[in-house]
């Protein structure tokens, strides 16, 4: 029963946080220089045309009133329209949000699969070759800019060795699968479309590897540091003094304790990825949320900016909630 009360409390907090985010984003976008009306009508338009557009967009009203109108619209399920693409924002996001989720998820899984094992092994075998390799890789990962690594990978695997396809979005030399979730890999599998699956898998490899390397570095460091700390703890020493074999010391005694900080780190990184990975999306022409957000900001396209920020905040908050629930099961102290 405690867990239900806890979830309820967190959901209330989630709504409060989203309201806060919406107010800040709304005010900041309106206060920043740049009026969409001028961009819409072009530099040659006369004053009355501009004024008419401003009035039509509702930008002549005071900001609190504009916000109130926006929220009313939002609660009716309408995210507004983008003047840049000419589409309703919901329509634009329908393809872009799944694109970002797909890339973020593949990148996260890749990062988990290399960083966590390497972090654990390097903590278990200090000063070994693996440990040194881990140090070098995590050092590179935190210092190399992701756009640079992306460009390097394109140069090597596409331009020189022709192993990877051209960095031109989510799929090439095949038509996209019938859309169900909007995620090409999943939709290809669901519809049994092997051609689309292969083509989209090839496209996602390089951007996913780029992100997995960059976000894997902090994950490796956290895993390594906490595994070290746990291995030196009194309870591991005590368990060893009771004759518990090494395998059980690592997997049954140490690992569950390391899982807490590591899952927190995963949540932080995944939340970051879901907010859109602007630079990598740009380099690989990936039609995701990050690229959409930047293009919208550059053209003072208010509705998409609001939508993207709110969606990012929502994903962050949901991931944190799920992580806390997970900790509820792993860590008896939180119960």
């Amino acid at each position: 029963m405690r867990i239900l009360a806890y979830i309820g409390q967190r959901l209330v907090l989630l709504i409060v946080a989203l309201l806060g985010v919406s107010i800040i984003t709304f005010v900041v976008t309106r206060v920043l220089p740049g009026n969409p009306a001028y961009l819409i009508v072009g530099v040659q338009a006369d004053y009355s045309t501009v004024a008419a557009v401003i009035e039509k967009l509702g930008l002549d009203k005071p900001i609190p009133e504009q916000y109130f109108l926006y929220m009313k619209q939002l609660f009716a399920g309408d995210l507004g329209s983008s003047w840049r693409t000419g589409n309703p924002v919901t329509y634009d996001l329908k393809s872009r949000w799944p694109a970002t989720i797909e890339l973020a998820t593949i990148a996260m899984l890749l990062a988990i699969s290399w960083a966590i094992p390497l972090g654990l092994v390097s903590a278990l075998k200090k000063r070994s070759i693996t440990d040194r390799l881990a140090k070098i890789l995590s050092g590179l990962g935190v210092s190399i800019p992701e756009f640079w690594l992306a460009t390097l990978l394109i140069l090597v695997f596409f331009a020189i060795f022709h192993i990877a396809p051209a960095p031109i979005g989510r799929i090439s030399r095949a038509s996209p699968p019938d859309l169900i979730t909007g995620m090409y890999l999943i939709d290809s599998i669901l519809t049994g479309n092997m051609t689309a699956l292969k083509a989209s898998a090839k496209q996602i490899i390089l951007p996913a590897v780029t992100l997995a390397f960059v976000i894997g570095a902090p994950l490796l460091r956290v895993t390594r540091a906490f595994m070290n700390e746990v291995l030196e703890s009194q309870y591991i020493r005590s368990a060893r003094a009771m004759g518990i074999p090494k395998q059980s010391l690592i997997f049954r005694h140490a690992l569950p304790n390391v899982l807490l900080p590591v899952t927190t780190m995963i949540a932080v990184l995944y939340g970051y990825l879901l907010g859109g990975t602007v630079l990598v999306e740009y380099v690989f022409a990936w039609p995701g949320m990050g690229k959409y957000a930047i293009d919208s900001i550059n053209s003072s396209d208010y509705a998409p900016v609001m939508a993207v920020v709110l969606l990012s905040a929502l994903s962050y908050l949901i991931i944190y909630l799920l992580t806390d629930l997970l900790h509820f099961f792993i860590d008896p102290r939180t119960r």
């Binding site: 703890s233 009194q234 309870y235 591991i236 020493r237 005590s238 368990a239 049954r252 005694h253 569950p256 304790n257 792993i330 860590d331 008896p332 102290r333």
Partner: peptide, 12 residues
């Protein structure tokens, strides 16, 4: 050991 509470694994 000296600190019996720290000698027990907190998650088991």
């Amino acid at each position: 050991f000296q600190n019996p509470k720290a000698s027990l694994n907190p998650v088991r």
